[in-house]
Amino acid sequence: MRRLGRLYGRDTPAHLVAMLVTYAIAAYGIWAIFQGAEPWSVLLWLGGAIVLHDFVFLPLYTAAYRLARRAGGVEADRRRRVIALQHLAVPAMLAILLLLAALPLILELSTANYRPTTGMTQEPYLERWLAVTAALFVLSGVAYLIRVRGDHAKAEDASAG
């Protein structure tokens, strides 16, 4: 039993049970996908989701992170720069997530379906997204100023004390 476990790579049978559950149910899902229309297209998009994340988004945000770290620069005022970067990165990240979540609306990608179905146009969404993005940067900037001022006050208190 222990030898089998070593051969498999885990001590407890729970792992093997979990694997069997996963592959059994997932296999049913994939089998069912193949009963329907365009199964390869579904699999392409399922796999494409991983490829897109691992080979497009991950390198992009890793690069952004590396760049930001380099800008973080000299150790002496590292904290201040890290904080400044945080206050730029957070609204930027949120704006990108919102863009992703409402992509077809903001870029008017689905007007051909949206308009006849709902009776509305997609025109307002780009402006709305830009306004939300601007508001996020402004709010983050205000929060930064408050935080930096708080730091200054603390530093002054420390020097006075």
Partner: peptide
């Protein structure tokens, strides 16, 4: 948002991909 940049039917694909996920 009524955007279908793929050739499969949404309901069926979403439903059975949910089984894979489950």
């Amino acid at each position: 948002a009524y955007w279908y940049p793929w050739s499969f039917g949404f309901v069926q694909a979403h439903f059975y991909a949910a089984w894979v996920f489950l």
